[in-house]
Design a protein around this nucleic acid. Structure first.
Length: 422
RNA sequence: GUGAGCGUAGCUCAACCCGGUUAGAGCACUGGACUGUGGAUCCAGGAGUUGGGGGUUCAAGUCCCCUCGCUCACCCCA
């Protein structure tokens, strides 16, 4: 067929699924407000350089997943693959380091990565995220994790696991990388080709290799743990965070192999996983990125944040109870004059804050009632010749089947009451 | 980028192995039985270039090849 379809890796969100998305967004905004995070909206595309420098040349995102294009002015632009670098760019661009160095922001919106789609992975996907810029304290790491945890709880998600690790800072990370390389080089025959490549380009990433033979190497006695290479400050940071998480009664496990894909992370990294979601089981992750602001040309500003995948969360929400449909009144005119009456009524309902669906007289009453039922609407207002002559509105309750004649004021009062009860 | 599975009506599927007339059914939709009253029942109707192209054959939805798309997995992540 010549019909144009949504491009690969994109999709339409419609029908009842929209209610799930709205619910998720409502919860995110509510919890953000509670924790004092303000919304920031950055462009969907940025200069490519922001991501190559901010996310890291060696990352999968930059090497193979970016939607990069040249605009008519010859600029290289990229559809944002993640939210943190743009937020930090906005922070720097608007001079926050000088006039308000400590901000807590959140965002919700689409991200783009060129990958083969599969369950829970799309080329256009959506994330919400929180970023605390200018905060170097471990308590802020704890707050961000608590924020994430609170949202998942508010959404009623269960079976979640939180993994935490520290990958050090520019002082101690290189020392560990050196140790790691030193340990692995004599054993390189036992590593997969992928790990051999990463050992050169991005050594930390070998840790989360899933090849069993590689993991055997990493599990052996004497394999250097990143934890043992942390400098004093990083170690203190980590210990404080763990204590605070325990205070907050947020269950977590330390995963010494958790490194995460983006180059900008320092110290704390964490990931939230869920069972029963197929291969793509991470529904959120984040960490500290004290080097990011400098990497994209700003001053030395610490930061910590997290991002969550909304498609994956909606998949989980969809398995729970169906969303409750909003209250709505169906307006069913029987003839042209009745359309005028109901059109006027609709203006009154709108003024009173009562949602409605107005259909038109080209359809039979039978159609209207059937249609109203299919829309899960409980109340139908019918106006035909009889009602017009009597100057009333017929209100039918589809649940009980009963029907009453009401004046305009009675009708509005009744509907307001029903809406309250809903 | 690699691998596997799958593409038939708006949706779910049948017919495919083993080629054979006009590709069927349920749901949904529209109308009617019921000329102003839904859910049930019955009847009727619209709807398909069987993803696209090529090949084999007297004959292709069915077999073969190519291509596009979808799905899942690898990779990696959200």
């Amino acid at each position: 067929m010549e019909g144009i379809k949504a491009p690969r890796g994109t999709r339409d969100i419609l029908g009842e699924e929209v209610l799930l998305w709205q619910h998720l967004e409502d919860v995110v905004r509510k919890i953000a407000l509670l924790f004092g995070y303000e919304e920031v909206r950055t462009p969907i595309f940025e200069h490519t350089e922001l991501f190559t420098r901010g996310v890291g040349e060696e990352t999968d995102i930059v090497q193979k997943e970016m939607y990069t294009f040249t605009d008519k002015g010859g600029r290289s632009l990229t559809l944002r693959p993640e939210g943190t670098a743009p937020v930090v760019r906005a922070y720097l661009e608007h001079g926050f380091p000088v006039h308000e160095p400590r901000v807590k922001w959140y965002y919700i919106g689409p991200m783009f990565r060129y990958e083969r789609p599969q369950a829970g992975r799309m080329r256009q996907f959506h994330q919400f995220g929180f970023e605390a810029l200018g905060f170097g304290e471990p308590a802020c790491d704890a707050e961000v994790i608590q924020l994430a945890w609170t949202i998942y709880q508010e959404l009623g998600l269960s079976d979640l696991s939180l993994e935490v690790n520290s990958i050090g800072c520019p002082l101690c990370k290189p020392q560990y990388v050196a140790k790691l390389r030193e340990y692995l080089m004599p054993r390189r025959e036992r590593l997969c080709v992928n790990c051999l490549r990463r050992l050169e380009s991005n050594p930390l990433r070998v840790l989360d290799c899933k090849v069993e033979r590689c993991q055997e190497v990493f599990s052996e006695e004497g394999f250097p743990r990143i934890h043992d290479s942390l400098c004093t400050l990083c170690r203190e940071h980590e210990e404080t965070l763990f204590t605070l998480l325990e205070d907050l009664r947020i269950p977590f496990v330390v995963n010494h192999r958790l490194v995460r894909g983006l180059d900008y992370y320092t110290r704390t990294v964490f990931e939230v996983k869920v069972r029963h979601l197929g291969a793509q089981d991470a529904i959120g992750g984040g960490g500290r990125y004290d080097g990011l602001a400098q990497a994209i040309g700003g001053p030395d500003i610490p930061g910590v944040g997290f991002a969550a995948g909304m498609e994956r969360i909606v998949l989980l929400l969809g398995r729970e109870a169906k969303p409750t449909l909003p209250f709505r009144v169906y307006l069913a005119p029987q003839d042209a004059p009745a359309e005028r009456v109901l059109l006027s009524l609709s203006r009154e309902l709108a003024a009173q804050g009562i949602p409605f669906h107005l259909d038109f007289a080209t359809k039979s009453l039978k159609y209207h009632l059937k249609h109203a039922q299919r829309m899960h609407v409980r109340f139908v207002v019918i106006v035909g010749e009889r009602e017009r002559e009597a100057g009333v509105f017929a209100l039918k309750d589809l649940t009980s089947g009963e029907q009453v004649s009401l004046s305009l004021t009675e009708l509005v009062a009744r509907l307001r009451k029903e809406r309250e009860l809903c």
